[in-house]
């Protein structure tokens, strides 16, 4: 049984992923509205393409940590597959440590830039302009939480290898 904090963390990640799913539905709806409004009512919206762009960012950013949690990011695993199971586990943890560290540096860079966008009052540059940090914050979340999952994987326990991985092994 994982630690309660780990469980809470997993739950937050999972919740984010569901939210991303809802956002994806939003993308589909925006496109439908735009087509109908433009073709049938001759009244194209000036917001749908911007909203689609923001939604895509939100959906992708919210999903990245879930992918890290469930081993969903792809890699070329020819080499690690040749290792013995024990070595494989150690090796995977080492890779996760590298991945977590790189994501932390990335998150740090993007957070710094997001704060600069906040201070400078930078907006987005699409039809429907909103403060840019509203959108960038999701990317920050994506990388911070992704790195947390990689680091958890590296420092604590074997990852929950998902079913696909097992099929492959």
């Amino acid at each position: 049984m994982p630690h309660p904090i780990a469980r809470l963390h997993d739950r937050i990640t999972r919740f984010g992923f569901y939210l991303g799913g809802a956002t994806l539905c939003g993308i589909v709806l925006c496109f439908w509205v735009e087509v109908v409004a433009r073709y049938f009512f001759n009244a194209p919206t000036l917001w749908s393409s911007s909203l689609v762009a923001y939604f895509l960012c939100i959906a992708v950013s919210l999903s990245m940590p879930e992918l890290a949690r469930t081993n969903g990011h792809i890699a070329i695993t020819v080499l690690p597959e040749r290792l013995s199971p024990i070595m494989r586990q150690r090796y995977d943890r080492m890779i996760a440590l590298v991945a977590g560290s790189v994501c932390i540096v990335t998150a740090w860079i993007i957070v710094k830039e997001t704060l600069r966008q906040f201070d400078g009052g930078t907006t987005t540059a699409l039809g429907l302009d909103i403060p840019k940090y509203w959108v960038s914050s999701f990317i920050c979340y994506g990388f911070i939480n992704t790195s947390l999952h990689f680091l958890r994987h590296a420092l604590f326990a074997a990852p929950p290898h998902n079913s696909n991985e097992q099929q492959e092994a």
Binding site: P44, S49, G127
Partner: peptide
């Protein structure tokens, strides 16, 4: 809009 048209934003 001033000329009676409908503006469309697209790439």
């Amino acid at each position: 809009q001033g000329l009676g048209g409908t503006p469309v934003l697209m790439s």
